[in-house]
Simulated scan of single mutants.
Amino acid sequence: MRRVFVAGIGATKIGEHWERSIRDLMVESSLNAIKDAGIDKKEVEAIFVGNMSSGYLQGQEHLGALLSTWLGIPGVAACKVEAACASGGAAFHNAFLAVKSGVYDCVLAVGVEKMTDAVTSDLTSALIMADDQEYVAFAGFSFVALNALVYRAYMKKYGAKQEDIALFAVHDHKYAVNNPLAQYRRAITLDTVLSSPLVADPLRLFECAPTGDGSAAILLCSEEKMKELGLEAEVEVAASSVATDILSLHDRDDLTTLVSTRRAAEKAYKMAGISAKDVDIVEVHDAFTILGVIHLEDLGFAKKGEGWKLVKDGEIEKDGKVPTNLMGGLKARGHPVGATGIYQIYDVALQLFGKAGPNQVDDASIGLAQNVGGVGGTVSISILKRVR
């Protein structure tokens, strides 16, 4: 099968875009990606839009045709892809497969979500749709409560301390300062995190990713199309995988391991011909601090129960062993859920293109982005590789 390359990237700033519609956001990011590639938009043959809740929150579905219409390229293949918070990663996976298979040569993967227009009760209802409505949601659980259960289980099983896990949020904010697209570009202290309001015991407010609006886009092209368009092939998609787990926590054997991450990572590492030790830059789905720690373990960067040590010892810093979330992560860059997976790939691509500014990792050549839907019900893994 053919090689697939990143031809262009684009994104909006994440924030509270009160005067902009979901259509406005995804059109902007898409045009930015096309402009970054330096090609005519009519070269795009297909579009996959990752989104979780537009139907419930905006009363707007059919995002593929909506986007192709407002981009001025009606007629292309286009559809929405939904996998809860992993919708962006799943959209990218479909775009990758579309080019890799030879069906299309130039495909746009877009992620978009607009959350701040909704009242809190509606947003809470939308997010818990990522789990079983007939049992979990009906019983009154919120998405935050489910992750609080994971947090408690992890501390009990491994004896980890909250102050060590909560450092993940401090880390994210440190690097978001240098990201012009980040929602919260300010540093915070551990005391700030631990003294913030309790949301669901033991999760504190500043351990949770915020709600926000945003859109990001990645333009993928085949090697043949890159040559035809006169584009330099710098960053290749070395692997893209998706895996699932039992949907709800109460049916799983271990709350502290996301089997879907392990499965997707195993597939992706094999496809890329690498192992965890070869990865230079990582983007993990830290919707909550505890998840960031667990993800580092399940991706193979730390032993089970020791992911927090990487954070505490500074090993996820720019000059550490596993540079992680160097553009602010979900906590500080922001988490417009259906768009998050594309933002993560955007941030990895920035590093590999050497355009991450003060947050640039020297000689970064392989990057991994992990996007999670629900509490690990779905996980996508994308591995990018700099080829020149």
Rank of each mutant, 00 (worst) to 15 (best):
A83D: 10
A169Y: 08
I73H: 01
S68D: 03
V235C: 02
D298M: 08
K277P: 02
R388S: 09
L368N: 02
I381Y: 14
H93V: 10
W308Y: 15
A182H: 01
G72N: 03
L310C: 04
A86F: 01
C221D: 06
E113D: 08
A37F: 09
K355D: 15
E28V: 06
T261K: 08
W70L: 10
E315C: 05
L229K: 00
A91T: 11
F138H: 14
F301V: 05
V282L: 13
G212C: 05
D254P: 00
N94E: 15
K385E: 10
S142H: 07
V136G: 00
D278C: 00
T116G: 09
H171K: 10
L25E: 02
S222Q: 06
G338R: 01
L190H: 05
A37H: 08
A86V: 09
L194T: 02
Y269S: 11
E224R: 14
R204H: 14
I39D: 00
A176W: 08
E297Y: 08
I14M: 14
I342A: 02
F5E: 00
L97D: 09
L330H: 10
L181P: 07
V311G: 09
A130V: 05
Q351V: 01
I274F: 15
I290F: 11
M52I: 08
V119A: 12
V387N: 09
Y151C: 04
K304E: 14
R185W: 11
P358Y: 05
G38E: 03
E61S: 10
S21M: 02
L25R: 03
I128E: 10
K161A: 12
D253R: 15
L299T: 05
R263K: 14
E19R: 13
